[in-house]
Write a protein that binds this DNA or RNA. Structure first.
Lengths: 355, 355
DNA sequence: CTGTTAGCGCTTTCAG
DNA sequence: CTGAAAGCGCTAACAG
């Protein structure tokens, strides 16, 4: 284990003081060309790498921003994380990630750990921690929260209007002539999920369609949940020609359930998702979905923390908007079946796409 | 910005010396119950959090292991990362992640950064850096490499036998009666991809089937590549009843291409992937794939670095094996079409699943 | 058991 | 422009 070499050794070899080396390294002051060269040389020869830990202690800042996400195995969070990475390029900060697996305790622990590491700023993606706690922490370290509106003047929150997104999805379905539209929900109690559901009901109402609770099934944002939700819906035997899923992963599960019952998308039922995760452009059929520009969101978050750290006010630019990406999982309801045939009763029927 | 409080303040409030507080915190020595209580109390009152940076500098170890991955937006890498997280639970180490986006330069930079942060150990997932460089770094910091066999006695490598996996996939297809088996490759020059391809050829040979280069198309491990590869294959107009894809993402793309040409999986062509990424159980149809137990691999990697750090020899247990997970994207070739009908010429034909 | 005293490696006044 | 010296916050001998 080759011993780590230090600034002091470099200084000695170059015949200067440690402060000079430090200054040269950080460009804080001009250093005589001659000495600079000598320093450069000994750095090479010794293969010196500054100890960031010591530097962090001395400077009082670590040049790191901590990113807390719920789950690493998730295209959704990944996109945002990637955005953060992108956004940090060009700034002098590095990101370190940690995930909390939806456990509130874990979140608290990770948060503490990040603070212990003295990150200069924090980005929390869809945190579950309550506003008050967040507010408290934000008083100690610059914090931006992504995916949720936090009621605190210390934390900078970046969130989309999920209602608007759901609106887009519903309008699309309605315009295609669908009247019996089922809904597969997200985890209850989460603002974004609630918002989507509320909009689903409102949209129905605005279109003069009675809300039917039997057309909604609970989901949990993951494939398995979508699968069982759709199975439940189908088992109830009520007719519906389209389904709006609270997120893409649920939609995948729903599509598989449909497939298992020999029902075809979009011929038998149209499905629209939410998130427009990378995979959605490649599933069969490609999924119509509400795109959340997560990458961009991540980038904005990165810029915001850096601004916060620098004591600037984060630019409150016009945020990227949610938009509907129409693909092949939705189609207009054919006139003859506008009377809403029952998907359930058509199981195993032969209504195939006319070739 | 509430000022960060220090050990010293805690000590003062508790009326003891800093070392006593430190000892109590780390459990290095017994501390009188009375004082311990006082310390505990002032910690509470001041809401003290140890400064891990200072601690790291003083101890000479940071209790962190760095994890370098190629891409954060990838179910493949995610699984392994998650495994590392899991494997670290119970140990006193935290993981910090960084991704390098397949850029060799980025890799070097990140590696340097991790070393600068004085991580106690390093896990590199599918690094592109050459063996010699890896070997050099490994002499300074405990290192385990996942996904590749590194020729160095300093680095501990953990890799699967991709040849075996490919073997499994091919045997499955062959047993199902397929003779004309196409292949969609991975990025050239990468050991794992090369290994899979080689095995594809060998398996064909062993089965007495002539290798036909026109049945292989280049891919790049991502959906788009799989899509164009399959399109190319179809355009060549040669008959094939099955396709082996170098990884799952390619398979998704291939399945979409098939869908676009009105070809059905597995009725018209069977497809098998490699990796068995989480989503594969939920695509339509669920994909038959060679499972790489990445999660477990990540866990093992975590245990290995910890062992290495502690100066122990990492346990070389029997590693989890690759296995074939048979789902619904493959099926036996019906006898009558055993003479290998041309998928291409059947495009838009009506051969649908008999209902 | 506990206080005192040195550092860990680097930055940053403070004087030249 | 540059050296000396004083920390950053915590741990780890070293003496009680």
């Amino acid at each position: 284990m080759a011993s780590k070499i230090t600034l002091e050794e470099v200084a000695r070899l170059a015949g200067v003081s440690t402060s000079t080396v430090s200054r040269h390294l950080n460009g804080t002051h001009f250093v005589a060309d001659e000495k600079a060269a000598a320093i450069e040389q000994s750095i090479q020869r010794l293969n010196y790498r500054p100890n960031l830990v010591a530097r962090g202690l001395a400077r009082g800042r670590t040049l790191t921003v901590g990113v807390l996400t719920q789950e690493i195995v998730s295209s959704f969070f990944n996109e945002a994380m990637r955005g953060v990475e992108d956004g940090l390029i060009g700034h002098e900060y590095d990101a370190i990630f940690a995930s909390t697996h939806w456990e509130r305790d874990d979140e608290a622990k990770r948060l503490a750990s990040m603070e212990g590491r003295r990150v200069d700023g924090l980005i929390l993606i869809h945190p579950g921690i309550d506003d008050a706690t967040l507010d408290r922490h934000a008083q100690t370290v610059p914090m931006v929260v992504v995916g949720r509106q936090v009621n605190s003047r210390f934390v900078h929150s970046l969130a989309f209007d999920h209602g608007l997104g759901a609106q887009l999805a519903m309008e699309h379905l309605l315009e295609l002539g669908h009247r019996r539209i089922a809904y597969i929900g997200g985890p209850t109690g989460r603002a974004d999920a609630d918002q989507r559901f509320t909009t689903y009901r409102h949209a129905l109402q605005s279109a003069g369609i009675a809300f039917d609770p039997r057309l909604v099934a609970p989901g949990n944002y993951v494939e398995a949940g979508g699968l069982s939700a759709m199975t439940l819906l189908l088992d109830r035997g009520l007719p519906f020609s389209a389904v709006f899923c609270a997120n893409d992963d649920s939609a995948y599960g729903a599509m598989l359930a449909l497939h298992r019952r020999q029902l075809r998308v979009p011929d038998d039922v149209s499905v629209v998702g939410f998130d427009d995760v990378a995979h959605s452009a490649y599933c069969v059929p490609p999924l119509t979905s509400v795109k959340q520009p997560l990458r961009e969101l991540g980038r904005e978050a990165a810029n915001a923390v850096v601004a916060l750290i620098d004591g600037r006010k984060p630019p409150r630019g016009p945020m990227a908007r949610l938009e509907l990406v129409v693909r092949e999982s939705t189609r207009a309801l054919p006139m003859q079946s506008a009377k809403a045939t029952s998907a359930a009763t058509r199981q195993k029927a032969t209504s195939r796409r006319s070739t």
